[in-house]
Design a binder for these strands. Sequence first.
DNA 1: GTCTATAAACGGATAGAC
DNA 2: GTCTATCCGTTTATAGAC
Lengths: 206, 206
Amino acid sequence: MAQGGGSASATRPGKRERLVSAARELVYFKGIAGTSLADIANAADVPVGNVYYYFKTKNEIVGAVVRTYEDQLQTLVSEVERRHQSPEARLEAFVAVLVEHAVAATERYGTQYGCPYGTLSSELAMRAEGPDPLAATLMRIQLDWTEQQFRAMGRADARDLAIELLAAYQGAAVLTSTLGDAELLTRRGQRLQQWIDELAVGRPAR
Amino acid sequence: MAQGGGSASATRPGKRERLVSAARELVYFKGIAGTSLADIANAADVPVGNVYYYFKTKNEIVGAVVRTYEDQLQTLVSEVERRHQSPEARLEAFVAVLVEHAVAATERYGTQYGCPYGTLSSELAMRAEGPDPLAATLMRIQLDWTEQQFRAMGRADARDLAIELLAAYQGAAVLTSTLGDAELLTRRGQRLQQWIDELAVGRPAR
DNA sequence: GTCTATAAACGGATAGAC
DNA sequence: GTCTATCCGTTTATAGAC
């Protein structure tokens, strides 16, 4: 299968990586359905038909993009765990990074976009007939890790809190992109961090 | 323009209404991009090419769908205001209806779908170049009404609370559809109502 | 006013030359 | 292993018959 899988030590950028990278960007901005293979190939500076040498189907490219996000999330939480000791500090840092990413995308381009994980997962869930495991993965990774932090804080309702936190962030991202208000996400992120703080201080059951 | 606009007293179902109704359903389940004019015409029992007699373009149909949702939201809040006096009761009823709608859609079909307003608005925001007023309308209507209720409760931070409430609901809808967990939305809805209760009781600033 | 037939463009995907 | 040329289905949209 071509020249090495994903994170292998390649000798150069590699067309496969370029394709996935371009696909990720385009899918984030225009959605899966709104992104054609020609768009991807064009953005990656790869001949159109040549795409099929690296991926047998469009869905396979989307799968690779999801895989990229999985890795990114894994790296993200590892980094957060390395830099912060307490679960509450880790959660706050996690929220901060998510918000930063979205804001960074906004500054690079004109309009306001939502959470990459959320929009991609939503579209995957919609295009699938029944429940789609691929659509759930990214959310579940975040959910599991967040729950773990709340549990480390001694919360018995860790799962519910994890759902509450992620839902709050995802919803804020939706409002941000639909209203086109970049500041909304930042403000909501700060309030979420405040909420985490309050949970950490005491108030056992809420 | 054919036989009467929207809510006029027509003599029969009418093809235009059938088209919009079919479009609304399909767009909810498959998204705008995932729904073709042939799908819509087929579901509405209208010849494919004939669609263009009623709508000049696909975007126009989508616009009509959005318009439908606007009316539905207007009816919804009017009904809620008629049935409930206190702002907190109104907010709780509003949340209850939103959750009910999503759950009803789940029971009619197999899989779990998100909030119709949210998914549609998100897709509209994504397909537009710059900020899209159409994408913002549905959210803004809900936001304004919700803010109004919080203000009636004497909250100075009414706008922030409105954003918090809607974001919490939208996020729960995203998680629900991506995880395929129907119960999640119901549970989150109950917690939101509880939260509204607590705000009503006292705790002025939070 | 209603519908059929069809155009024009684009999408994903393939065969096969280099 | 890399790229070109192309096929075929689908999609939006139109022209024009009834």
